[in-house]
Design a protein around this nucleic acid. Structure first.
Length: 449
DNA sequence: AGCCTTTGACCAGCG
DNA sequence: TCGCTGGTCAAAGGC
């Protein structure tokens, strides 16, 4: 950690701790086949606003018996408004589910010469424990490099990047196994680098139909999404002062940001109309600006920009709430379409119980993107299967209406009370657990190389 | 003709 | 004060 980062850390009035991260690599000696387990426990503290790398030799664990060591380098990337949004969060769930990569996804790595240094991509087993929903989060990104000077003197370095583009607070234990066989081969599964869950429908700040629309809030009620466009807002709330601002006045009031794959950029169940495009400093891709196309004075805005780092991934930022419910008949609406343009009559701010999914009107961006790295080492056999797999949150979506079916009236009127939270938490927990079970099943279907 | 996108201009915030 | 940045406007163009 840089000295100035420590200074900034001291400035923070609020920090939140991410629970313990545990890395458990198990190494099998190729001569004795007796396993040696190394367990490292790291405590990470997230640092809002700043990109911080935690991890150096202090985080290394040295196993004297095997002369093995590894380091874990978590990097936390938080949005500036993350803590604020975290405070706003009402929907919590706490499933404790294990994701296991099935052994039939193993590939082989031949150790041609134990006396030379070989580098290979090693397996990563992830066990994710969620303590808050991840609205749009990269759960983990891992790159594992294992160096084999000899098989009984193994250095394993685990480098992990945990990205928290929105709201996250969870534990990521990582278990790694390397097991050479009698032919001096090491078997390992495909390199799972990303598990991206885009369950936008969990949060009404994304204006997803699964969440009841909100009525105008009380003055002392924390807004779920910063209202940044005072010019537009003034027409809806004439009592508020005019600012005639074309631009946000505070960077900290940026809206929520999510990372969406290309095919899903245009699908978020609202109609949008593009009103501008600007080149953005430091980015090779321009940013497109969209406004809600349902009502001319709706303050909802959406910005879409292609990711600098990920192909086929777009950064979608939502700003301001819709001040209306989704117009009826808004089927699979997309950017740039004129389908189902609403009438000028504002719909009442009510919602049919279960309408989020039961009516089938919405095409939610409820996808999990599982991305597999192509092997970097030529020693690793080529993978023929696609490196990206998408999972639809069918289970989540189908359950979604049930979540709010008996709660919609309460939710619409404002913040949730403790009973609401408990009900919601329990149902969301079940939903995610179901999803993760499906996830395991799909992982088991990954074809062998 | 209507709707949406494109694109340059405008303008407020900010350093 | 000034220049840069980025959010918005609105005319023009395309479909």
């Amino acid at each position: 950690m840089q000295p100035n980062e420590l200074t900034e850390l001291e400035k923070l009035t609020t920090t939140r701790s991410i629970p313990t991260t545990t890395i458990i690599p198990t190494i099998f000696n190729n001569t004795t086949s007796s396993p040696t387990t190394i367990v490292s426990t790291l405590s990470m503290t997230s640092i809002p606003t700043y990109i911080t790398t935690i991890g150096n030799t202090n985080n290394s664990v040295h196993n004297s018996k095997e002369s093995s060591s590894f380091s874990y380098f978590p990097t936390l990337i938080k949005q500036q408004n993350e803590l604020t949004e975290l405070e706003k969060l009402k929907h919590n769930f706490n499933p404790n589910t294990t994701i296991s990569i099935p052994t039939n996804t193993f590939s082989t790595f031949n150790i041609t010469n134990p006396n030379t240094t070989n580098t290979m991509i090693a397996p990563i087993y992830t066990t994710n424990t969620f303590t808050t929903p991840t609205l749009t989060s990269t759960i983990c990104t891992h790159t594992t490099t294992t160096t084999h000077p000899t098989m009984n003197n193994t250095n394993i370095s685990v480098q992990g990047t945990n990205q928290y583009p929105t709201i996250s607070n969870f534990t990521i234990p990582i278990k790694q196994q390397i097991q050479p066989n009698n032919n001096n081969q090491v078997f390992f599964p495909k390199h799972l680098t990303h598990i991206e869950m885009t369950n936008l429908h969990f949060d009404r700040t994304y204006n997803q139909p699964s969440v009841p629309q909100q009525l105008p809030r009380e003055s002392n009620q924390l807004p779920l999404v910063p209202q940044i466009n005072s010019q537009v807002l003034s027409s809806t709330h004439p009592q508020e002062p005019q600012h005639n601002s074309r631009k946000r006045k505070n960077n900290n009031q940026m809206g929520l940001e999510g990372h969406v794959i290309e095919e899903k950029v245009k699908e978020d169940s609202w109609t949008w109309i593009k009103y501008g495009q600007k080149p953005i400093n430091g980015s090779p891709h321009p940013r497109s600006y969209y406004k809600c196309n349902s009502f001319s004075d709706c303050p909802a805005r959406k910005m879409v920009q292609k990711s600098k780092t990920k192909n086929n991934t777009y950064v979608v930022t939502y700003k301001s709430d819709h001040d209306h419910i989704k117009p009826a008949g808004n089927l699979n609406s997309m950017i740039g379409t004129s389908l189902n343009k609403s009438s000028e009559t504002r719909l009442p701010a009510t919602r049919e119980p279960g309408s989020s999914s039961n009516v089938g009107n919405f095409h939610l961006p409820n996808v999990a993107v599982l991305q597999f790295d192509q092997p970097e080492s030529s020693n690793v056999s080529n993978f023929r299967s696609p490196n990206v797999m998408m999972l639809q949150f069918d289970q989540l979506e189908s359950n979604n209406g049930q979540i709010f079916a008996d709660e919609s009236d309460k939710k619409i009127t404002g913040s949730l009370d403790d009973d609401d939270d408990a009900i919601l938490l329990e149902k969301m927990k079940t939903m995610l657990e179901n999803f993760l079970v499906d996830f395991k099943h799909i992982m088991a279907l990954i074809p062998l190389d």
